[in-house]
Amino acid sequence: MTNEKNYMHKSWWKITAVLLLIYTVIAGFLGPVPHLPLLQETIRNLYFHVCMWFAMMILFTVSVVNSIRYLRSFNLKYDIYARQFAVVAIVFGILGYITGAIWASYTWADPNKPAANSFSTIARDPKLIGAAIALLVYFAYLILRDSVQDMDKKARISAVYNIFAYAILFPSIWILPRILPSLHPGNDGENPALDVKNDIDSGMRTVFYPAVIGWTLLGVWIATLKIRFSLLKEKKMSA
């Protein structure tokens, strides 16, 4: 317990997160990018849109790991961890959708019609379906949590659902896009959403990787703040 507390209170990784994000924003908006047809300057969205999904996946994974730890130890602390990481991951997923929608309205939408008219065509894209399913699963997770009154039972049931859903969900998100047709990059089979080696040139990668780490650390930071808050609330209730 003390170990993790220290880790949460340490400031070096928070400073790293801030520095990386400042670097991302400055280099992302001002740095050189390749001028590709159709994409043009919107390619800068890569530093934001893709990183949101990376951060979401990583945070969901952290949430599942904490659910497993809960089932191994029955320590309610891990249940709070799992919940808060899932909540922050959902926020990142929604931000990913917003950035994706802005991007798609410049690249995928039919230029002859208002961008909103292309919605039903765009929403059929398998990557969007996959992301929607992931968010729905975690909304269901939160509803399931709130529907049970007893604390231990709530923690146990939701941990079981979290693990089950994650284990079914992620293989299927990785399988689906390979079978259905899609406009989204990364269609040639190697990777479900983005082929890091071929889709991004080396100059962009020097911004992209720090951006992923920066956004993920920011997510972890938000989650740890929420965790500390709910741990304190717990303590106050039991005292």
């Binding site: 996959g130 992931a134 269901a140 509803i143 399931l144 079914i168 259905l180």
Partner: peptide, 16 residues
């Protein structure tokens, strides 16, 4: 609640 829990999980398999 079963429908809420189950639909997102089953959609990928159903699509396949």
């Amino acid at each position: 609640i079963m429908a809420v829990l189950g639909f997102p999980i089953i959609i990928p398999q159903l699509i396949l």
